[in-house]
Design a protein around this nucleic acid. Structure first.
Lengths: 192, 192
DNA sequence: ATCTAAATTTGACTTATGTCAATTGCAAAT
DNA sequence: ATTTGCAATTGACATAAGTCAAATTTAGAT
């Protein structure tokens, strides 16, 4: 099995020594189901990558309901961008959806890498660029596709989530109510 | 009247000399109504800031319809992020909604600034960070608020747009059909 | 293993927004 | 000033998703 960190950084254009330096900056960390990697109003203490299992990030919306804004699977970078880069209180909460294993770079080490390894800040900017692109795409999908189409799409992109995450979190992430997703699932099974 | 560029860069922590260097990198440029600052599949040739009037950026969605993804008003930074930073063909098109005056930094100059002025790349990262935050907020609003609420919000944040942009563009930006926005406007006037 | 609370499912009904088609308004080009 | 075509409005009806409440299933705690 190829190691996750190699996959994550493979397109950064790092040489062997740089790659080793980056990898060494990470250490493994576990969270139990339901534990929080980052709390509301907490200040991000580092940068994480998912080694195993799934997490979600959520906010409390204007109707005082939880809304899942992101799911994280193996290989995903787990960041609350504003809180990490500007060291401000987080607007969202990041939570393990089951026993989870992460790689962490603590903030001071992260900052150091950013300053000393030119390629690392480039890598970071590219990551942000892609993130912006994905958010724009998501917005387009939200507007132009039905909930059923969005559900199928999530299933293709993150099959783990469809299988393992609780229905209510998937529903809020898709922008529909639990009841609607429940019916959606029933009906899409019927069709087959 | 305070000059736009001062406002745009005031929180970047630049000293006077740096500020002057940045400002000097810009030059003024005009576009006529309907002209494109960036075309589909074009490669971004620089970075723009709105001096006067309004623009929009749009994509062609899965139903082969135009969808306005962003409006730009005075002081806004006009970028197609992926195309600028990765010099890839643009997925969207940026268009002047009337006679428009922009400040431009041509790509090579932009890149130079990025490399030589430490604070400029920091400024860029902060801009991206905020952009990511805004996109997430927009997503939350799209899910939790009604079209009428989103319309009012746009009116508060970008009153210029509500007044000057064509209804159909506002509608597609809000994620509703022209007909629905037309009715929305009628009904909200009635209420008063 | 049992109990309890939370998550999911389902039914009946409501609401926001979409669809389609006809009409009117308006602005650019001649 | 007149024409022409796109933009906006409106009516009648359709549909996706929401609401509320009850029934059932599931997972955690004891």
């Amino acid at each position: 099995m190829t190691d996750i960190l190699t996959l994550v950084y493979q397109n950064g254009g790092f040489n062997e020594q740089e790659m080793a330096e980056i990898k060494n900056a990470h250490h493994e960390l576990r969270f139990k189901k339901g534990e929080n990697v980052l709390l509301f109003s907490g200040i991000s203490d580092g940068y994480y990558i998912v080694k195993e299992s799934i997490l979600r990030s959520y906010v409390i919306d204007f109707n005082h309901e939880e809304m899942t804004t992101e799911f994280y699977c193996q290989g995903d970078v787990v960041i609350e961008v504003v809180s990490l880069f500007q060291q401000k209180p987080s607007e969202s909460c990041i939570q393990a959806l089951s026993e989870v294993v992460l790689y962490k770079i603590p903030f001071p080490v992260f900052q150091q890498l950013f300053l000393t390894l030119r390629g690392f800040s480039d890598w970071g900017r590219n990551w942000m660029t892609e993130e912006l692109f994905k958010l724009k795409q998501r917005h387009i999908h939200m507007i132009t596709q039905t909930a059923a189409e969005r559900y199928l799409k999530l299933g293709e992109e993150k099959p783990d989530i469809i299988q393992k995450a609780p229905l209510k979190h998937i529903a809020s992430h898709l922008g529909i109510k639990n009841t609607s997703l429940s019916r959606l699932r029933r009906d899409s099974i019927k069709k087959r």
